Amino acid sequence: MRIAHALYQRFSQLIHELAKFGTVGALAFVVQLSTTNLMWTVFGVSALAGQAVGTVVATMVAFLGHRHWTFNTRARTGLGREYLLFFIMNGVGLLIQLGCVGTTVGILGLDSPLARNISGNFIGVGLGTLFRFWSYRLWVFPAEAKHMSVASHETTAPPAARAAEEPARQA
């Protein structure tokens, strides 16, 4: 039991971030899956374009959830910086998804809704999710702000640290 408790204590922040990341990701996945399939079936959009539109819409939902809930205890390095890096990292994640769909449709010749969903919405999203979690923690929402923009007006301390400092400033 001591080992399990010690491991939990050591990795508790990571465990909590993973749980929140999964929750926000599940919501964004539902948005992405619904939007992508809507683009394909109702609007007749191509496989790659439909996947791209669904991913962009889900990315906007995910940014709000991750910034304000999943990684809310991490440094704030400026809304513009975080937003830009978030979309760049999601662009890489999108390329991973598109690569999976492109391989399935273009190379393997499997162009059914089932094949598109398996390749893009399950395999592609799965691989993209691994990349996104790693990149968000490393670059988008870092533990500490190492590079602050002069134009940024936001404090770099996590919200919990700012709350703890407030009484000291008022005294």
Rank of each mutant, 00 (worst) to 15 (best):
M1P: 03
I3H: 09
A4G: 13
A6W: 11
L7I: 09
L7D: 09
L7P: 04
L7F: 14
Y8Q: 12
Y8T: 11
Q9K: 12
R10C: 13
R10Y: 14
F11K: 05
F11D: 10
F11R: 04
H16A: 09
E17P: 15
E17G: 14
A19R: 03
K20V: 09
K20G: 15
V24S: 02
A28T: 13
Q32T: 10
Q32P: 09
Q32Y: 10
Q32F: 04
Q32R: 08
T35A: 11
N37S: 05
N37K: 07
L38R: 05
L38Y: 14
L38S: 12
M39G: 08
M39H: 08
W40I: 09
T41Q: 13
G44K: 07
G44M: 08
G44F: 06
V45I: 05
S46A: 11
L48V: 15
L48P: 15
L48M: 15
A49W: 04
A49C: 09
G50I: 02
A52K: 01
T55K: 04
T55N: 13
A58N: 07
V61I: 10
A62W: 07
A62M: 05
L64S: 10
L64C: 10
G65W: 00
G65Q: 01
H66F: 14
H66C: 15
W69G: 00
T70V: 07
T70E: 09
T73V: 00
R76Q: 02
T77L: 05
G78M: 01
L79F: 13
L79M: 03
G80T: 08
E82K: 03
L85H: 07
F86C: 04
F86P: 06
I96K: 00
G102M: 02
T103M: 15
T104P: 08
T104C: 13
I107D: 10
I107P: 12
L108M: 07
S112A: 07
P113G: 08
L114G: 06
L114K: 04
R116L: 10
N117A: 14
I118Q: 01
G120T: 00
F122A: 07
I123N: 05
I123F: 11
V125H: 00
V125M: 06
G126N: 00
L127P: 02
G128N: 06
L130S: 08
F131D: 04
R132A: 12
R132S: 14
R132V: 12
S135V: 00
R137P: 01
W139H: 01
V140T: 11
F141R: 00
F141G: 03
A143I: 10
A143D: 14
E144L: 11
A145L: 01
K146W: 11
K146A: 13
K146C: 12
H147K: 08
H147P: 05
M148F: 06
S149Q: 08
V150L: 07
V150F: 02
V150C: 02
S152L: 01
T155G: 15
T155N: 14
A157M: 03
A160W: 01
A160L: 03
A160N: 02
A161C: 10
A161V: 12
A163S: 09
A163E: 12
A164P: 12
A164Q: 14
A164W: 13
A164I: 12
E165P: 08
E165I: 10
R169P: 04
R169C: 09
R169F: 07
Q170A: 15
A171K: 04
